[in-house]
């Protein structure tokens, strides 16, 4: 990879490094002090990072998302709300990774209320992140923010369901029964975890922190294997074409 691309991919880091260079030239003592101050936060971060990392992995491995997804529909009331909270809180990845999952659930008949709960919980309530928040901002802070957030999400979800009707949500035309010929990756949704490349390097490649489909023709015999990969994708970014 060339240097320009490296800088492009790490804009923030490049900008901060530049500030440090300027600082070290103009006020070296302040520069040293800044590094020292950063180191305090680096060491704090290193204490909590393994916890966040391992918790994320274990949740990903053991929380049966399919069971949760199948557990609610339009009329499942409070139970559906609880399932939505669980699904959102136990999922990894940024909020846009929740979009395709939620769209699929809407098609399956999930209510607007529950979709808002999933999206919001996905965004704000992350179990491993709670450990991180408690570390840097105190346990009390984390707990109180969690309670207030859950209350707000419930109020918000019901408010949105009153304002927005399901008819205003666009549903694309489904292509069904058509022959599966190759595999596609939604670049906006890909979180770059690389799981699909590891499982099937013949069909996927990495490009700019994202995965791209090699657009190779999909063999009949490979379809079943590909189904597992599609299911495993944490961002639900892979689909048949």
């Amino acid at each position: 990879m060339n240097r320009i691309e490296l800088i492009k991919r790490n804009k923030l880091l490049a900008a901060v490094s530049f500030l440090y260079v300027v600082l070290f030239i103009t006020m070296p003592d302040k520069g040293i002090l800044s590094v020292k101050n950063s180191m305090y936060y680096v060491s704090e971060m290193l204490q909590i990072m393994p916890v966040v990392f391992v918790l994320t992995s274990i949740i990903e491995a053991w929380v049966p998302k399919e069971v949760i997804i199948n557990g609610f529909g339009e009329g499942s009331g409070v139970k559906g709300n609880i399932y939505s909270f669980l699904l959102g809180s136990f999922s990894a990845g940024p909020i846009y990774a929740a979009f395709p999952v939620c769209k699929m659930l809407l098609k399956k008949g999930a209510s607007i209320t529950n979709i808002v709960i999933i999206l919001s919980a996905w965004a704000v309530i992350k179990i491993p992140m709670l450990a991180n928040e408690a570390k840097f901002l105190s346990f009390q802070f984390m707990g109180l923010r969690w309670i207030l957030t859950v209350l707000s999400i419930i109020l918000m979800a019901y408010a949105v369901s009153i304002i927005v009707k399901k008819e205003s949500i666009p549903f694309g035309v489904e292509i069904e029964g058509e022959k599966i010929s190759s595999i596609g990756v939604h670049e906006e949704y890909c979180i770059g975890c690389g799981l699909c490349i590891k499982s099937s390097p013949d069909y996927f490649e990495a490009k700019n922190k994202k995965v791209k489909s090699k657009n190779k023709k999909l063999e009949e015999t490979e379809i079943e294997n590909m189904r597992t990969i599609i299911e495993e994708c944490p961002a639900k970014a892979i689909s048949f074409k």
């Binding site: 991919r9 923030l12 880091l13 180191m39 936060y41 971060m45 994320t56 992995s57 690389g194």
Partner: peptide, 27 residues
């Protein structure tokens, strides 16, 4: 191990930003 690999991939992607923010905090 498989899900750890996935989590590792996600962390690796954020590493540049993590280091940048920590250095920014010092500043």
């Amino acid at each position: 191990l498989k899900s750890m690999k996935m989590a590792k991939g996600m962390m690796k992607n954020m590493l540049g930003q993590i280091i940048a923010i920590l250095l920014l905090i010092g500043l």
